[in-house]
Nucleic acid binder design. Structure first.
Length: 674
DNA sequence: ATGACCAATTGA
DNA sequence: CAATTGGTCATG
């Protein structure tokens, strides 16, 4: 550079000036108090599942609150993050980057919920980011700008507690809840019980202690019923919010914010509500915890019951598991002494329910022989249908929807397959021709691939075809169906027959005069771990909708009288059944008696896993092929080693993700094992 | 994931 | 000898 050139020196000075002006922006003054932000960065990688520290600038000091959303630069790219905490010093040796941006100062992940996410991630061998995604709904900026709703004022209604009297729950649950204690109870609801009011009263009692409540229910219809009951019991619709994915992003975020801001203290919803940011939660409740809808289908597949039980432990809240049946998991909690069993004695149970009888049907050939003893609708069932119909609605429960949902060869009984794609054939409507359920091709001139037969039979009858059959038998009474996407919610007291699939039964205003449970044998032939438990659960829901025997209520179950699930229903003993199931799980070493994990992935990836250092003692089974080209490994350990098993699996995922190996699917205590 | 770095392998 | 590929490491 020529020193005699004044212009050049001037330019250089200008450049230096510009550089100096930029400097303070790159390393701005850090906040005076708690200048370090611990951030959970939204990364899909298991080996980076830990907080990272960033500097909070003075300008960000106000808005960078623990629990808020931030943007950070991580490994060169801009990523979303959740600010977990503000601290004075960092353990990190290197230079810290600054928070790129505080997205909003709205607190969406309080420290207590963050801790819950961490516990659940660890339990299910997943990552914090995956669980936090379940706990924090997507942001809707417009909702954040809307004015804060004023918290509902005015005094709470008095706890009436009427439905709890008959459940022996006033002194054991309602009173402790109202006085600020945290009882834990498993409650089998009585047939005919007004369960939405029962749950709403427990919520009201909790509110009286100055605490909030979270209730998870399996499907939207159950949520709607509790929603209505809460509006009545709490003296208005504003003391609780509904939180389901079905709400749509804006309404969901509005409900979420009302809870997060402390404007509302009660959250109800499906499994998505388990992480609801209710302040000072005093009660967590689950309706019908045995319903598989409570199991989250996204990784790491947590179960709403387990999330809420964990939350109750961490927040010292009360627990209420209510259901007309009893899950094996709930029974295990009762037998371990962790949960009180608030059950009416079996005598009172029987008196509350309808008279239940079993009508025999041949389990080998349901649907055949329409007149004889093996008939799908045997004589006893037809008699009850005819006698009860004038007294009110009759519910007919069938396990399958559709018309003829499965077809087989009349000669050799082989399942009928599509000539084009080998898919299963079904007859979708009364007038329709058989067609493939996979590709839709109409099977015009079907020929059995096994024996050359040309006639089809239906080993399984759906709800539509059943309605058609019953329409012929019960003349003069309207027959309607309720299933799948055409669900009836409520029906009135007039004589009518409702053919419904499990979970789609409408509530009858004055209770059903009678119910027929068809194809019980068909349901019980499935060789699944949960077959019996699931059958008792579904049938118990049907029984709960029927009038008591004193009011003429009757139930006919068509199936084998000797099958244990049928016995449990007839004797009104879902608890005894759950206890026996649990004993069987113990001797078969299956959950919940043990902790079990499945690892699924490509054969080459799963093959080296049996040599891993699993907790001791443990059992490693497989790998065995699954439906697709993957294989599955099963590892089981005693319950006390459950967390050791999870951390081993977490370590395996971390090591794999660090060397860019494909992630394996890991499930802890899966709902079913195929 | 993304990028940096290093070492081994491959090709002209 | 350069170019390419593959493994390891760190990311605040």
């Amino acid at each position: 550079m020529d020193e005699t050139d004044p212009g050049g020196a001037e330019q250089l000075a200008l450049v230096r000036d510009a550089v100096r002006k930029q400097r303070p922006k790159r390393t701005p003054a850090a906040a005076e108090q708690l200048p370090i932000a611990r951030v959970a960065v939204d990364l899909p990688l298991a080996h980076l599942d830990r907080p990272f520290d960033y500097l909070v600038t003075q300008e960000q000091d106000e808005s960078a609150r623990p629990g808020c959303r931030v943007r950070v630069r991580f490994a060169g790219q801009l990523l979303d993050g959740l600010l977990l905490d503000r601290v004075e010093t960092s353990d990190h040796a290197g230079r810290l980057g600054r928070l790129e941006r505080v997205v909003s100062s709205e607190v969406v992940l309080r420290p207590d919920i963050a801790r819950l996410c961490r516990t659940i991630a660890d339990r299910y061998a997943g990552t914090f980011a995956d669980v936090a995604r379940l706990a924090v709904p997507p942001r809707h900026a417009r909702e954040e700008k809307t004015e804060r709703d004023l918290p509902t004022t005015g005094s709470l209604p008095i706890v009436d507690g009427t439905p709890w009297e008959s459940h022996d729950g006033t002194a054991r649950l309602l009173d402790p809840l109202a006085s600020g204690a945290s009882p834990r109870a498993c409650v089998p609801t009585l047939p005919g019980a007004d369960w939405p009011t029962l749950l709403a009263e427990a919520v009201l009692a909790t509110l009286h202690s100055g605490r909030g409540a979270v209730v998870c229910l399996p499907d939207v219809r159950d949520v709607d019923r509790l929603d209505a009951a809460l509006a009545t019991v709490l003296g208005g619709p504003d003391r609780h919010v509904v939180l389901t994915a079905a709400l749509g992003p804006q309404a969901r975020y509005r409900a979420f914010l009302a809870l997060a801001r402390g404007d509302v203290a009660v959250a109800i919803g499906n499994r998505a509500a388990a992480f609801a940011p209710v302040h000072d939660v005093g009660l967590v409740a689950v309706w019908d915890d045995g319903d598989d809808l409570h199991a989250e289908p996204r990784a790491p597949y947590p179960h709403a019951r387990e999330i809420l039980l964990t939350r109750a432990l961490e927040a010292d809240a009360a627990v209420l598991l209510a259901s007309p049946a009893r899950s094996v998991e709930a029974q295990a909690l009762v037998e371990s002494g962790w949960c009180a069993d608030i059950a009416a004695d079996s005598d009172r149970r029987r008196r509350a329910g309808p008279r239940i009888v079993v009508a025999g049907a041949s389990p080998s050939a349901p649907g055949r022989d329409p007149a004889g003893r093996g008939a799908r609708l045997p004589h006893e069932a037809q008699t009850v249908l005819r006698e009860s119909a004038p007294a009110g609605p009759v519910l007919v429960s069938v396990p399958r929807s559709g018309y003829r949902p499965a077809l087989a060869c009349r000669t050799c009984h082989a399942p009928a397959r599509c000539a084009t794609c080998q898919g299963p054939l079904a007859q979708p409507e009364s007038a329709a021709a058989p067609a493939c359920r996979w590709c839709g091709t109409v099977a015009a001139d079907w020929v059995c691939a096994e024996c050359g037969g040309t006639d089809l039979r239906a080993p399984v009858i759906g709800e539509r075809r059943t309605a058609e059959e019953i329409g012929r038998a019960a003349t003069g009474v309207p027959v309607r169906t309720s299933s799948g996407d055409r669900v009836l919610d409520r029906i009135d007291d007039r004589p009518q027959v409702i053919v419904a699939t499990p979970g789609a039964e409408p509530v009858a205003d004055g209770g059903y005069a009678a119910a027929l449970i068809l194809d019980a044998s068909l349901v019980l032939t499935r060789a699944d771990l949960r077959t019996g438990e699931e059958a008792v659960r579904r049938w118990s829901h049907v029984v709960a909708l029927v009038r008591s025997a004193a009011d003429g209520g009757r139930v006919v179950l068509v199936g084998s009288p000797s099958a244990p699930p049928v016995q449990a229903l007839v004797r009104s003993d879902p608890i005894g059944f759950a206890a026996r199931e649990l004993a069987e799980r113990r001797s078969a070493r299956l959950p919940p008696a043990v902790r079990l994990a499945t690892v699924t992935g490509p054969p080459d990836e799963v093959a080296p896993l049996p040599a891993e250092s699993w907790p001791d003692p443990s059992e490693v089974l497989g790998p065995v092929p699954t439906d697709d080209d993957d294989v599955r490994l099963v590892i089981r350990v005693p319950r006390r080693l459950g967390s050791a098993l999870s951390s081993t699996l977490q370590r395996i995922q971390s090591q794999r993700s660090a060397r860019k190996a494909p992630v394996l699917r890991i499930r802890i205590d899966p709902y079913e094992l195929d």
